[in-house]
Design a protein around this nucleic acid. Sequence first.
RNA 1: GCGCGGGUAGUCUAGUGGUAGGACAACGGCUUUCCGAGCCGUUAACCCGGGUUCAAAUCCCGGCCCGCGCACCA
Length: 564
Amino acid sequence: MSEILEMLIRRGFLWQSFEIYGGMAGFIDYGPLGNGLRRRLENLWREFFVVNERAVEIDTPTVGIEEVYIASGHATSFTDVAIECKKCGKVYRADHYIKEVLGLEVDESVEAIRDILSEFDLKCDCGGEFGEPAQFNLMFETRIGPGKGKRGYLRPETAQGIFIAFKRLADYFRDKLPFGVAQIGRSYRNEISPRQGVIRLREFNQAELEYFINPRNKRHPEFDRYRNVKVKLVDKSDAEYEIALGDAVEKGIILHEVIAYFIAKTREFLLKAGIDENRLRFRQHKDDERAHYASDCWDAEVYTAYGWIEVVGIADRGCYDLSRHAKFSGEDMSIFVPFKEPVKVKKKVIIPNMSKLGPIFRHKAKKVAEALKSMEAEESIVVEVDGEKIEVPPECYTIEEVEEIQHGEKIVPHVIEPSFGLDRITYAILEHSFDTDIVDGEERKVLRLKRWIAPVQVAVLPLLSRDPFTEKAKEITELLKKRGIFTEYDDSGSIGRRYRRYDEIGTPFCITVDHQTFDDNSVTIRDRDTTSQVRIGLGELVDVLLELLNSEKDIREFGEVFRD
RNA sequence: GCGCGGGUAGUCUAGUGGUAGGACAACGGCUUUCCGAGCCGUUAACCCGGGUUCAAAUCCCGGCCCGCGCACCA
């Protein structure tokens, strides 16, 4: 086990779930420190992607009814049929293998696959027989309600909860694009083989923003803020760039401004959270890697002990999700977008003559009339009703040219989705923050977390573990806690040991109560990164700490250096 | 899911059939205590199930978990 992972477990950042029953791959518990860190990260994300955007946050169920995932496509794309060779143990996606070997398109059902296997006597590459085809479903299935109940799934992404509520959300935003809707929460994928510690989990934390835009305008009003920001890009043909985002859009490397905007914002967020800029890049999905609905997709990748890992996906999902839900639910998922100026449009309309239509088409007359009205066409007089093509005699309608004033149009918004894997980001921050240095000839482990993200921000330490040092230190601890600073009190072991303890978990500042405290009502603040100390009066302690914790200022700005 | 290698206190590790040992950590005490000091003491472990054996941490089988490779990752 790596040094960092050993520390994370030992100090209570995270550990394997269900340990006393032998554990289960793909699940972790966040311990006190890991949970604190992830919560901080979530709040930082909120600041970036909700508070400072035209966006809101919602919370929807983690269990979804079957309909949702039929519409979204997950129900079919998640239930691949797999076949396994009895001899060499290789597992294939049946439809892929059959297409490759036999060139046949086949239904993804167990029966269809079984028929093909026996009909063509299909063998594995190694010559072995295949066992029974079996479904593997990457969604966790469940039953809702008693008895057989209704089939449901644990959500594989938080996004669908947002798409489903789109009408309510559009209403909330008074039908004005663009707007964003965020959700932070757990999602579930029944991975075949979870690996690599916290990198691939079966239950994981996502923060997703669905940013709905008018497809006719894929520009972003705030893009100028980032136009000149240089980022490290790897495009779909593996070409690498260090390029200003404005240029990347102009050159067509990035499809449009909104994606570029979120790449910039994501970068800003990750750096603020403590990701090392030198171990961050944005990589474009290759054509065969991209989901079928996405027109462009960029991953933020960070370099870790596991290599480059994806921590954020930024995709243009187009109108895919809303259109699918519109189709499957029968609801209108469009927004009326007014034109700047109303447009006069001359068009020919068909006006049905009901007195003729009635006798000819009887009970179908109404449907025929509606079909006629909905036609733009001047040329065609064939309508389709209930799948039947019907020729309508000319005496049944008249064509008139009318002038209409159009005030706008109905459009199905496109959605740009930045989707964050919080567990991976949390881990990457820890790995990038982990460091060792030499203090007084001895190696020191130190977690150089950003001050605003550290789970324990301040430790208050009495120099001696007895009165009056301990009493004073407890008093100060209470004071800091009341002011919202995450503070711990610790009087166990020598002072040096305690400093090391807090260095290891990334606590930025230690407050030490020493003999001088009782002479002049001052304490020392020790900086984790430099181990240097300054003296400061108790009266200004809270304000100084709050300022330090929200900046990267040097403690020496606030007091005299003590015991250099 | 396949193959290979592993699983001993909180952590790291010794132990190849017969008493489970060490280091670090933690906890209590002593210590005139500002960078993992010292001394004394305490807590604390053989992944689970079955088999072989008088006797299993140790040998065998199965499972679970971890690592690596393959496959999978909408």
